[in-house]
Design a protein around this nucleic acid. Structure first.
Length: 935
RNA sequence: GGGGGAUUAGCUCAGUUGGGAGAGCGUUUGGCUGGCAGCCAAAAGGUCAGGGGUUCGAGUCCCCUAUCCUCCA
């Protein structure tokens, strides 16, 4: 029987038992902060089990794609470890319990209409004191007691060891079904969890029966398939073996199961499956969280390939093998395979580059070790390489082996553990507690009426006083004004932050109180109004009016509708790959992240902006409706892979060009967006770009601001040609020239900064803005700092011009002129002089010239840099240094005379001081010191 | 969210108690030369990521910001 058939049989079997078939949830459940990936079939139903959502059904079945990395090191080594796998499950939310769960499981496994396994090969386990389950197995199924084993809480309880070790919360005994394979080994194929207790505190008497008991079962699809298909490893079932073979083909290694490379091929097979699904869901390899896990999986697979000789990207070529095997269960995987391939290829290239870099670093580390005569690579060194540069330890090890060096794995692991500790770990709570959770259980949901109304009557259902450090407190009534509260009502006009759109603000008023809402958040289906009490006494059970700040809401609506239009323009300009990656919609402000491999060019950006503006002014209607998911799909609504959509869905259509599934609030016509301005485009992660834009009043303000900025900047620079960028270039070029002339002592060059006269030319707004942005980029500042930067550059230019003028007026400071003032001490020419107007670079140059001309010689030059500052530079020719003269000591003794200090090397040294009036005294001192030094 | 690292010429990177900004490749020019990375010589090319601080003096030390890499959660 094919794996695809088993999956389908399971789901339809439970449909015949009154279960609702649920699509596999996404691999990355953003709604659940306690996990990065969906780890089990029950995960998407967590809130159903906890009674925190309204139940549309009480029996469900699913084949859930899961990802676990806990046992990652065993992947490929054992017959049954995976990171990515599918979990078949059936669930009861306070509906049926042990009897049905057990008998249906048995029926599905043994009935020839379904799997038809040999009943004699099936054994079960139950929890120690779970007589109820044991009796069902014995009396109703007819299993002899010898085939029912009772095990302790570590094996037959969920969570494992919960009764004595915790955590607190719902838990219960479980019963596992084992299959005796032809080799005589027992393999676990199905775990039935009977959730019937709430654990509170430590034993004894800590398990309290739940009023509503649940069933949660899980059967690994790959494992049951291997049993049915008589394979001794999951990797040889019909949907996995072809992938393993494909890996071998591309890597150029024949698949031999027991071989070391067999292990590698299986591991690559597993990881590419995981990566294909993750990238399909828009989870790209990246530096943290779930993205990082994907990066690690992908890089492990690349490294395996690398160690089998692959030096070019190869994983991406396996995507088609994965989609081929998985498309029956997950048809949309095919729709994205081009994108998935290109993302994987890019990451492969990045990692191969890191590996190259790593090889160089290993070389450097090894030569250091070799010089100290070590025979083993210390774990700490390898850990350091890994943590800082991502050099994989396996690579270090294999290179060490080539050099007949050992590798200290223990030390490495120890160092990594230490690193883990130092990085600090903030653990997630498995089950959140607190007043909000309590309200979720009792109230379940807040009805949102804000699509049509800006104000609604509502009843105050909960008041929570926000504690400073998260310890919130629920209260019946509250009268301390200005205290921070969370208010929950049965209905509301306030939009709770979701889908990127920020929450509403406004007021909640009762006859006795006025509560200012600053933000609205959603927790499950509950709306939380965050704010403070302005006046009066707020009491639970009172009737109230929820009134949103309509002006702010209008700004948010403008930004949200503009976001959809922008999304359309992006795809139109860049291609259909430019999909939304993330979005934030605020009052007349929006941030939109999307997939694009390279920066969006200025021209493209302008085109995108003007397309949006055109669509805005075309006055097209914006409509929304609620319809079945399948129908929205048929109408071509844009759907994001990896996004979880309710069914029915809300679809927002703009004119005839945009249909998106969206729960946000929108305008009724495009022209209400008003002005639209893209204010920045930047990279946010590899393959992801971010556009920030403004709408309505904020966009208009921005435009006015840019015009003023342009005028001021142009005035400062006297940019009569109207080309700010040219003027900026001219200015920076002039400064460069000035510096060059100063350091070479060339006073003849004409670098006069005569401003070009005339009024700034008038440019169109877009051109002015482009000029400002280009100029800002040229000067490496944000647009807002442009004027400041220009001022600083103008000041620098003035300063340099002034210095050059001084140097010019100081007259001849050539080497020859200085040599005329030389005195002779012990056969050495000594020059001690003031080099008026010179800068340190020029002084050094003069000293070099003199030293070249006269040997032996000692030179010390002084020059005032400004009204008070003095610079001294001393140089001593090579021969004199050999005799014990020292330029460093020389300036060190002289500098205090002008109130400073200094030092340097024996042949060349530099010093400074703060009292230019003492230059004559310093010259006297310098003469004394050098005389002594040379005698 | 936290740890480590990086940012210097068009590119790849050196730069040691803080005291003359460098190499290789590339570019340009000149000369030599019958080829395949031709040879020789010279030159141009730098806000040392940005900002602040310490100092007589900062590529170098300290702080902040930005970008990138990397590990941990």
């Amino acid at each position: 029987m094919k794996t695809d058939e088993i999956r389908e049989k399971y789901l339809s079997f439970y449909e015949t038992k009154g279960h609702t078939r649920c699509e596999s949830d996404v691999l990355v459940p953003t709604w659940d902060p306690s996990v990065l990936f969906t780890p089990a079939g029950m995960n998407p139903f967590k809130d159903h089990f906890l009674g925190k959502v309204k139940l549309d059904f009480t029996r469900a079945t699913s084949s859930q794609k899961c990802l676990r990395t806990g046992d990652i090191d065993n992947v490929g080594r054992t017959s049954y470890h995976h990171t990515f796998f599918e979990m078949l499950g059936n669930f009861s939310f306070g509906d049926y319990f042990k009897r049905e769960a057990i008998s249906w499981a048995w029926e599905f496994l043994t009935d020839s209409k379904w799997l038809g396994l040999d009943a004699d090969r099936l054994n079960v386990t139950v929890y120690l004191d779970d007589d109820e389950a044991a009796n069902i197995w014995h009396d109703e199924i007819g299993l002899p007691t010898g085939r029912i084993t009772r095990l302790g809480e570590d094996d037959n309880f969920w969570p494992a060891g919960a009764p004595s070790g915790g955590p607190d919360g719902v838990c219960g005994p479980c019963s596992e079904i084992f299959y005796l394979d032809p080799k005589g080994e027992e393999v676990e194929i199905w775990n039935l969890v009977f959730t019937q207790f709430n654990r509170i505190g430590n034993p004894p008497d800590n398990l309290h029966p739940l009023p509503s008991r649940n069933i949660d079962t899980g059967m690994g699809l790959e494992r049951i398939a291997s049993v049915i298909q008589g394979q001794d490893t999951n990797y040889h079932i019909d949907i996995l073996r072809p992938i393993v073979e494909a890996v071998g083909e591309i890597v150029g290694v024949k698949y031999i199961p027991d071989d070391n490379s067999g292990r590698r091929l299986r591991r690559i097979c597993d990881h590419i499956r995981a990566c294909t699904f993750a990238v399909h869901e828009n989870v790209y390899p990246g530096p943290n969280k779930e993205k990082y896990v994907i990066r690690r999986l992908l890089r492990r697979a690349v490294l395996d390939g690398h160690q089998m000789g692959m030096r070019e990207p190869f994983l991406y070529q396996l995507v088609s093998a994965v989609t081929e095997q998985m498309k029956a269960g997950y048809p949309d995987i095919c729709e994205t395979s081009d994108r998935v391939e290109s993302v994987i290829k890019q990451e492969e290239n990045a990692f191969l580059a890191t590996l190259d870099d790593g090889l160089a670093r290993i070389d450097a580390a090894f030569s250091e070790l070799k010089s100290s005569g070590q025979l083993q690579i210390p774990g700490a060194t390898a850990a350091d390489l890994y943590q800082t540069y991502g050099v994989p330890p396996e690579l270090v090890e294999s290179m060490a082996t080539d050099l007949e060096l050992g590798f200290d794995w223990d030390g490495f692991k120890q160092a990594m553990e230490q690193h883990g500790l130092e990085s600090g770990k903030n653990q997630f709570e498995l089950f959140k507690t607190g007043p909000v959770e309590g309200l979720k259980e009792t109230l379940k949901e807040t009805k949102f009426l804000g699509y049509d109304q800006t104000q609604t009557a509502a009843e105050i259902k909960g008041i929570i006083i926000r504690g400073d450090d998260g310890d919130d407190l629920q209260t019946e009534s509250h009268d301390v004004s200005n205290s921070k509260l969370i208010v929950v009502t049965d209905v509301t006009a306030f939009y709770g932050e979701s889908g990127g759109q920020v929450g509403d603000s406004g007021k909640i008023e009762t006859d006795n109180a006025s509560f200012i809402v600053e933000d609205t958040q959603k927790d499950g289906d509950l709306f939380l109004h965050y704010g403070y009490l302005a006046a009066g006494t707020l009491s639970q059970g009172e009737m109230a009016q929820t009134k949103i700040d309509t002006e702010r809401r209008d700004g948010i609506r403008r930004a949200h509708s503009a976001t959809h239009i922008l999304h359309h323009a992006l795809q139109n300009t860049l291609g259909s790959h430019a999909q939304q990656q993330g979005s934030k919609v605020d009052e007349d402000w929006l941030r939109f992240d999307f997939t694009n491999m390279e920066p969006v060019s200025d021209e493209q950006l302008l085109s995108i902006e003007s397309q949006v503006q055109q669509l805005v002014s075309s006055q097209q209607p914006i409509k929304w409706e609620t319809l079945p998911l399948a129908e929205a799909r048929a109408q071509g609504a844009m759907m994001l892979f990896g996004e979880k959509y309710p069914d029915p869905v809300r679809m927002v259509s703009i004119g005839d060009f945009s249909k998106e599934l969206c729960g946000g609030t929108h305008l009724t016509a495009t022209d209400h967006v008003g002005s639209f301005q893209i204010i920045s485009e930047e990279g946010v992660a590899a393959g992801t770009r971010r556009i920030i834009a403004l709408t309505g009043a904020k966009a208009a303000e921005y435009m006015a601001h840019m015009e003023i900025l342009y005028k001021e900047a142009a005035n400062k620079l006297s940019a009569s040609q109207g080309l700010l960028t040219d003027s900026v270039e001219l200015l920076t070029g002039r400064i460069r020239e000035l510096k060059k002339h100063l350091s070479s002592g060339n006073t003849n060059a004409d670098v006069s900064a005569e401003p070009t006269q005339g009024e700034p030319a008038t440019l169109t707004y877009v051109k002015q803005r482009t000029q400002i942005r280009k100029a800002a980029r040229q000067l490496n500042v944000a647009s807002s700092d442009l004027l400041e930067r220009i001022d600083a550059l103008l000041a620098e230019q003035d300063k340099l011009t002034e210095q050059l003028k001084q140097l010019k007026s100081a007259g001849d400071v050539s080497a020859d002129a200085l040599l005329e003032s030389a005195i002779e001490i012990k056969n050495a020419k000594v020059v001690i002089a003031e080099a008026k107007g010179a800068n340190p670079g020029l002084m050094r140059q003069l000293i070099d010239q003199i030293r070249k001309k006269v040997e032996p010689s000692a030179i010390l030059l002084l020059a005032a840099q400004s009204e008070d500052k003095v610079v001294l530079v001393a140089g001593i020719s090579h021969a004199l240094v050999g005799q014990g003269a020292n330029a460093g000591n020389w300036v060190r003794e002289v500098a205090p005379v002008v109130g400073g200090g200094g030092g340097g090397k024996p042949d060349m040294a530099q010093a400074g001081g703060k009292d230019a009036s003492q230059i004559p005294a310093a010259i006297e001192k310098a003469t004394m010191v050098i005389t002594e030094m040379l005698s």
